[in-house]
Write a protein that binds this DNA or RNA. Structure first.
Ligand SMILES: [Mn+2]
Ligand SMILES: [Mn+2]
Ligand SMILES: [Mn+2]
Ligand SMILES: [Mn+2]
Lengths: 229, 229
DNA sequence: CTTGTAAATTAGTCTAGACTAATTTAGTAT
DNA sequence: ATACTAAATTAGTCTAGACTAATTTACAAG
């Protein structure tokens, strides 16, 4: 009887490595380089080499002939569950306890490894099975299904159509603070008025105001078309 | 500049050892034997020897000439903070998320080591600064002050006086389930009718029913006199 | 006093997960 | 092809925190 490891069978360290590989994996499916993992987790290259060996033995990841890392189905399953924990926790900390975004992220980064399946379940119910976390990131479902992202960046959005901001994808705190102050936060309802030619600014209607934001900023803003409501 | 360790400077393992010593310390102040710690934490004697050495070096505990363990002020401070985390978490899990007692205890046993001071604070506020956890155990305050226990066991309580159950002190799950089913849970309002002589049972009025419980059971039930309300 | 037992210690081993320093591999650019 | 560079690996070290097996200490009872 082989033991197939699930989330709570693997250490927090392993969980972080898997999550990291999942999140760095580019959509082209080429896999992740070890050096990327090393700097994302702020560990040295030999630490990664060592852990990757263990993860291969556990059948949680494979490597391409070119040495890039690809999660197995099982590895990805664990990564998704950790991400589910993380995003549920963030949502809970922000919505129920009023914690700030940045801090909620740091707290969730730790607690994600320690909550039981039942607590996860209780938080999920308490929040009425949320689909997205406060950043607008989709929350994987318990079966590991990640709701497909149908959102696009504001740059690709149609003009004069009601939109809802669903996610701000930026690591830059300055950028995030700027967006926060401009009231361009997830959940906000906006419409795009026009995009000025020659790399110009975007005119965005929010409430009864119109703001002009740069293309760089717009590229961070993911929106969904909202068919009314 | 000496570094004085505080809760988040010490590992979860250390936190558990300190908590354990605190909770096993008998009120006579004679200190705890290592063998007690070993069996409470389900580790072997050499593990305790080893850890005790480290805790002494950290000035978190001392030993009597007879080799018994006594926490220093700092060690006790950490123990109390871990206990505060534990009891706040239990209260939160039970009251806010509807988790069962037993499970909340297990969950808190882990999470107590991982919540930040700010999350502790938020939970405390969310619960409106509770004084007791669901078992009726007092919650240490942030400054480490443990509200004095004025409760006594049902055996010592006066008859025909309104009482409130404040705590069930038993490790035995059978006992706790029995009390749960008999509606003798913390918060319940009861009056003691009489104690039968020759080691007899206690007649307890709860609501409009009268139950008869053994002295062994009564010894687990801590009550406060409730001056009405 | 001697002896039997419980408690504690010593010595040595193990695992996870990090590290440094040195070396090898592989891909790019000349 | 050669050389330079970035990425990866190897080898060895370290710490925390557990373990076993063997030994020592301390005491209580005869
Ligand atoms: Mn993490
Ligand atoms: Mn889960
Ligand atoms: Mn614990
Ligand atoms: Mn605290």
């Amino acid at each position: 009887m082989e033991k197939l490891p699930a989330t709570h069978d693997v250490s927090p360290a392993i969980q972080d490595y898997l999550k990291c590989c999942y999140q760095l994996a580019d959509p082209t499916g080429q896999g992740v380089a070890m050096v990327q993992v090393a700097e994302a987790l702020r560990v040295t290259a030999p630490s990664v080499t060592n852990m990757v060996k263990r993860l291969e033995d556990l059948r949680l990841l494979r490597r391409t002939p070119h040495g890039r890392l690809i999660l197995t189905v099982r590895g990805e399953g664990i990564a998704l569950e950790v991400i589910r924990h993380h995003r549920l926790l963030e949502t809970f900390l922000v919505d129920t306890l009023g914690m700030g975004w940045g801090e909620a992220h740091k707290e969730a980064e730790i607690l994600e490894h320690y909550i039981s399946e039942h607590l996860e379940q209780l938080i999920d119910s308490h929040l009425a099975n949320p689909r997205r976390d406060p950043h607008g990131e989709p929350i994987p479902r318990r079966d590991g299904l990640l709701p497909h992202r149908t959102s696009a960046t504001l740059l690709e959005a149609p003009c004069n159509t009601p939109l809802r901001i669903v996610q701000l994808r930026s690591q830059d705190p300055t950028m995030l603070r700027y967006l926060e102050e401009t009231r361009l936060h997830p959940g906000a309802r906006i419409t795009l008025r026009e995009i000025a030619p020659f790399n110009g600014a975007l005119a965005v209607r929010i409430g009864r105001e119109t703001r002009h934001i740069s293309r760089d900023v717009a590229a961070c803003i993911f929106v969904l078309q909202t068919t009314g409501k």
